[in-house]
Amino acid sequence: MRDLMLSGPGRVVGTTLAVLMLTGAFFLAIGRDPVELMGLIVRSAAGDGYAITESLVRATPILLCALATALPARLGLITVGAEGQLYFGALLGTGFVLANLGATSAAPYMAMIVVAMLAGAAWALLPAVLRSHLGVNETISTLLVNYVAALLVTWVVYGPWKSAANLGWPATADFPEAFKPSTFFDSRVHSGLWIAIGLAVLLHWTFVRTRWGLTLDVLRSNPRAGIAAGLNWRRNVLLTMALGGMLAGLAGILETASIQGRLQANLSAGAGLSGFLVAWLARNHCLRIIPMSLLVGALLASGDGLQMFANVPSSIALVVQGLLFVAVLLVGGYANRLQVRRG
């Protein structure tokens, strides 16, 4: 029994059972039939072609944000800044689009992506420098700058970049077709999904196969020994956080250009925090991040279906997401304790 608890599959089974029990208990507490409601969640998330593509759409920014969290986590950093980096990437990327509204060729499209990724990196570098050079805790600083980035987006869509064409709705002008990523058949699934999956595979390969991956492992598990051996901890803090910021910035501009078609407030819909959960679920393993983000994306996408067909507020999906996080920490924590006790 103990060995089963410690194994990878054992943890997965334990976490699944725990989340089913917690969710079932919550559904009972609000007076709903747990089996019926769970069935509805599955159907709303993956019941037909439309549901599946909507789940994939929701999973795409979460996948990128999870990778953005996993990168600094390879160094042992706990960052929750993907949300802010996503906003800032979307902000500067949109700025570039608005300055080039007449563009038709592919070059400005690529430039928009690059601008957004650099913006995400720049936004991540602020807490990174605070951490590496001043010792400010990165979890707290990333959370604070998230609010700043989100408010900057709110400011431009209510103020200087607000388009009169939206009849009072706070948003920028629509993106021209040249700036929209190609979509998959006639769904809203866009090329960002394949890019994100490709990046996950690439990162996994980098972490497992390259010298740099090993450097990060050493600095994470034993920073003092790593630094004594001549490894540069500070530079790697900046590097991992900036690279992570690029991925979150990419998520921001893809979501803006493809799904929303213009910059609006609240564009992230919590993708940054969901990405943190996914990275934790996958224990920062970039290949495992792919199915986990699909799972969480599907769960969140099911909320809209539930609201429509079962007359349950869509926020019920957020409750289940929170219970999932609690379950994984509960099972993981007790499993770790068993492991420590066995030595």
Partner: peptide, 10 residues
């Protein structure tokens, strides 16, 4: 963060 997420949802 889990407690935040759960509290936000609830």
């Amino acid at each position: 963060l889990a407690v935040w997420m759960l509290g936000f949802g609830l």
